[in-house]
Design a protein around this nucleic acid. Structure first.
Lengths: 240, 240
DNA sequence: GGTTATTTGTGCGTATGTATG
DNA sequence: CCATACATACGCACAAATAAC
């Protein structure tokens, strides 16, 4: 034959439909084309389309109603990236309930490269916060935030008391902060990452590193974030 | 034992080192820690580290010199995203040779959603350009650019003659254009995408959709881009 | 320029888990 | 159930190239 289609047809179709939902070709609440129409579009049997739709339904992306059709119930979370990136605001603005779960708060001296990015001397104490971000109860990202502990007295305690980073910063005397830079690439999920994000090992993640600074341009946070690739869309407004 | 490490140790180590290079923890030209040091850091035998390094060497990321050490020879391409995104300038600014290969130029009427984003009526003619972008000869991204043909007379011919989109626009009377919005997520590579990008099927891609408009804010291009996740890092300057 | 310590490259032996027949 | 083959992983020893003194 032509080649060998390693991926089953129904998976390819599910992926295609998933992409259409992520691209807002089908908005939340929209009715998908009928199974017969989809079967014709993809050139497959209706059973194959049904298999794909069943997969999307178990993922919670669509809901089927007998006699009515298939309806989009959820779409990837929009996550705006700009000068002011606030997790809670970002998620809440999309009409979803933001939530954070902290795994561990670690304190250790900075390595040379960590010190460079945060503009502190090597060996200066760091406070590192590992956890997961959720929207509407489903995990969307893993994060590990690096804070310069000596510049932010009491940051570790503030992070455990308050859920938001913004509030924790305020307790440490940082009234405002802005995003200096963001770097984005894609990585496969490790076994442990997949576990926490409820994904398969090797599933594509959006890996982002970011630097936040206070009003004087002094770095206050260096963050690494692993977004579940099919559950989040980072958006960048041209104006930023 | 604890769990079952499905992925081989040497692959996990290779991935970790690959990430460190992408994060610029080890810059191009830097010497990696010795095999003995890495073996101690990862808690494995030196042979296992060697296996990982061999994998990185075949990828062209590092080069080994007996008696001297292991040196970083390449790192992911930096691709700045901002108000003015120009492929050739982006790649050239990083000291790499930009190149483009066009697979097909297609002309067909716009669907309803395509018309919405490009602000043309449904059924209005579109010019769609499929191809691959390369840096230093290695493919880094697949793209399909959608142009409103009626707004840009002669765009199809201009795209075949000139390599750059910027020059093609100029031929059609668009002297300048800026990035209106960018949307980013991660997707696994399909079989055909993997083929063109020289990746494994399912490898993580950064999937980006973008909208460019002319000086009057009139959309002139809607683009979809699939970046090879481990070969590109999108960077967003806070100031843009 | 020669000596020495460091570092990669190579070889062999052992053990384990997994897939195949 | 057993034999075989293969990939993974560890341990030890030594050769060869490099760099530093």
């Amino acid at each position: 034959m032509t080649g060998r289609p390693k991926t089953p047809l129904w998976q390819a179709i599910a992926r295609s439909l998933r992409g259409d939902i992520a691209d807002r070709i089908y908005e939340v609440g929209d009715k998908l084309p009928t199974e017969a129409q989809l079967a014709e579009r993809f050139g497959v049997n209706r059973h194959t389309v049904r298999h794909a739709i069943r997969a999307l339904a178990t993922e919670g992306l669509v809901r089927t109603r007998r006699g009515a059709g298939v309806f989009v119930t959820a779409a990837p979370t929009e996550y705006p990236i700009g000068k002011r990136v606030r997790f809670h605001q970002n998620i809440a603005a999309g009409g979803q309930a933001p939530q954070k779960r902290i795994f561990q708060i670690e304190e250790r001296p900075a390595t040379a490269s960590e010190g460079d990015t945060l503009m502190v001397s090597r060996g200066s104490q760091l406070c590192i916060c590992h956890g997961v971000s959720l929207a509407n109860g489903t995990p969307i990202a893993l994060f590990s935030s690096h804070f310069p502990a000596e510049r932010l007295p009491g940051i570790a305690a503030a992070l455990t008391e308050r859920t938001g980073v913004t509030e924790a910063f305020r307790l440490c005397g940082v009234s405002d902060y802005t995003r200096v830079s963001t770097r984005i690439s894609a990585r496969p999920a490790t076994a442990t990452q997949a576990l926490h994000l409820h994904l398969e090992e090797g599933a594509p993640l959006v890996y982002s590193t970011s630097l936040n600074a206070d009003g004087q341009g002094c770095p206050v946070e260096f963050g690494k974030t692993w977004f579940a690739g099919d559950r989040v869309t980072l958006t960048i407004d041209g104006a930023v």
